[in-house]
Simulated scan of single mutants.
Amino acid sequence: MGTYAPDPHALPAPWDGPRDSAGDSTGMDDRALLRHVLCTLEAGSVDTDTLVDVLLARFGSAGMALSAHPNDLDAVLGAYPSLSPMIATVREAALRLHRAYVRQGDALSGHQRVVDYLQAVMAHDSTEQFRVLFLDGEHRLIEDRIMGIGTVDQAPVYPREVMRRALDLDARILILAHNHPSGDPTPSAPDIQMTLHIQQVASVMGIHLHDHFVVGNGRSISFRKMGLI
């Protein structure tokens, strides 16, 4: 990356731009956000602008870069081995924040929060995983549980195990989710067949299947919105 002379003024001041009603900054673009994060994690020792260019070229956005799989980050940040675990810590903090949002109150009223959480936790996995959000009768999240981990294009799904866990938790509502490592969230015929099977079994047991999300890289689809359930 060439010779880099640390800039004593490289560390940006705390963000003091406009914020929306939720307290989120609305004026910091992806480049500024990444630069701020990198300078904060490795003040004065990183060729920040070059790394920002590389991260945006590789991942497309600040959000996707900061939630990238550690192996992908290592490939990009090899010259700065300490940065990858630091960003992984940032990612874990963000995931815990997402989980807290999803757990608060009525999970079914926060559709975008659920989608954002699933994107953060699943979109970058290089293998397919199947997870279930178990909700009580008041739409509150009881548990988010991975029920199957597979290969690059399939994960085992056992409806009886899903139902057994739902009964153990006294869950009344299910939200299914799985990722497509290819990045294309279009559901396959087996995805649809499996979902309808779980819906049928759940209905017999008095449990409502609310939705099934398929998560791609930056995109998600909802079976409910597509009219598939």
Rank of each mutant, 00 (worst) to 15 (best):
P6H: 09
P6A: 09
A10E: 15
L11Q: 01
L11G: 03
L11H: 04
G17N: 12
P18F: 13
R19S: 13
S21F: 15
G23D: 07
S25V: 14
S25T: 14
T26N: 09
T26G: 12
T26M: 11
G27D: 10
M28N: 06
D29W: 09
D29Y: 08
D30H: 12
D30F: 01
R31V: 00
A32H: 08
L34I: 02
R35T: 07
V37Q: 09
V37R: 02
L41N: 08
G44K: 06
V46W: 00
T48E: 05
L51C: 03
L51Q: 06
V52C: 04
D53E: 11
R58K: 07
A62L: 02
G63W: 00
S67A: 04
P70C: 11
N71V: 13
D72L: 11
L73T: 13
D74A: 15
D74V: 15
D74I: 15
V76Y: 09
Y80F: 11
P81A: 05
S82L: 03
S82M: 01
L83Q: 06
P85A: 07
P85D: 08
P85C: 06
P85V: 04
I87T: 00
T89Q: 06
E92M: 01
L95Q: 00
A100I: 00
V102M: 05
V102R: 13
R103Q: 14
R103A: 13
A107S: 03
S109G: 11
S109F: 09
G110N: 04
G110D: 05
Q112K: 09
R113D: 08
V114W: 04
Q119F: 02
Q119T: 12
Q119K: 12
V121D: 08
V121A: 11
T127V: 15
T127C: 14
T127A: 11
E128L: 14
R131N: 05
L133A: 12
L133I: 08
E138D: 15
E138Y: 15
L141Q: 15
E143H: 08
D144Y: 02
R145N: 13
I146F: 06
V152C: 10
A155W: 11
A155S: 11
Y158E: 06
P159L: 07
R160W: 05
E161S: 12
E161Y: 12
V162P: 03
A166T: 09
L167Q: 14
L174Y: 01
I175P: 02
H178V: 15
N179G: 07
S182F: 14
D184R: 12
D184S: 13
P187R: 02
P187E: 08
P187N: 07
P190K: 11
D191P: 00
D191Q: 04
I192T: 09
L196H: 06
I198S: 11
I198C: 14
Q199G: 10
Q200W: 04
A202M: 02
V204R: 07
G206D: 01
F213E: 02
F213M: 06
V214A: 02
G216I: 13
G218L: 13
R219S: 02
I221W: 04
I229Q: 07
